[in-house]
């Protein structure tokens, strides 16, 4: 069996890898490898087995105080229980959407929820402009107000095919089909090789993969 460890540390929010593997595109070994990554991220500032917002920011930007609208939205979506931290199960289930084998439908839905800043069930023009401004701020790219307005309006009108002033899920799906690069960042090829990144853990895994 190759079991070097008789017991696995059971930290707060830890979930059975076999259950997580059954619910996601990951194998049991991959979930175990993700636990190694999770442990690293969740102990970078506060060693409590939970990823806090600052730890997430630190991992993404090497800066715990880096404010970024999109990273905040990702954190909020990963934090399914909305209790201000990401637990292991939430981490694995959310990352599952970014797996190359996850369904395009799930990726499109996740991106929609990400951009629906105020969670109204629609992406509104004001939200789109807010996101463009946030991106410009982050990239230090300078565009005139007129150019920003033109980009936002043109995009919005193209996506809002029924012309009701907001982008719904179906309009978003059609827009992504037209511009597939929009969900490119919803796929992390790296997740297919996650066990290669953390081989030390795989050697000590308790559960053998069924597939």
């Amino acid at each position: 069996m190759g079991c070097y460890h008789s017991k696995k540390p059971k930290t707060q929010g830890y979930e059975d890898p076999t259950v997580l593997a059954a619910e996601t595109p990951f194998t049991v070994s991959e979930v175990e490898a993700l636990y190694e990554l999770f442990k690293k991220l969740s102990s970078s500032i506060i060693n409590d087995g939970l990823i806090h917002r600052e730890e997430f920011q630190l991992a993404l930007f090497r800066n715990r105080n880096m404010k970024n609208l999109f990273a905040d939205r990702i954190f909020d979506l990963f934090d399914v229980k909305r209790n201000g931290v990401i637990e292991f199960g939430e981490f694995v289930r959310s990352l599952g959407i970014f797996h190359p084998n996850a369904s395009i439908k799930d990726k499109i839905t996740f991106a929609f929820r990400l951009y629906d800043l105020r969670q109204t069930g629609f992406i509104e023009q004001e939200e789109l402009k807010e996101m463009v401004l946030a991106l410009l701020h982050e990239s230090e790219l300078t565009l005139s107000d007129d150019v920003i307005e033109t980009i936002v309006e043109k995009t919005f009108n193209e996506a809002d095919t029924n012309g009701d002033g907001k982008i719904d899920q179906e309009e978003w799906r059609e827009f992504v089909m037209k511009y597939p690069s929009l969900i490119k960042n919803m796929t992390l090829p790296y997740l297919k090789d996650i066990t290669m990144a953390f081989p030390s853990f795989v050697a000590s895994t308790e559960v053998e993969d069924s597939d």
Partner: peptide, 26 residues
């Protein structure tokens, strides 16, 4: 592509905050 010719969603999808690959960097 120039930012001016991109649609708004293409532009925002370039955010570093959406690039989770950095989570896996050692």
């Amino acid at each position: 592509a120039s930012p001016v010719t991109m649609n708004a969603f293409e532009l925002i999808s370039k955010s570093r905050g959406l690039d989770l690959a950095t989570l896996f960097e050692k």
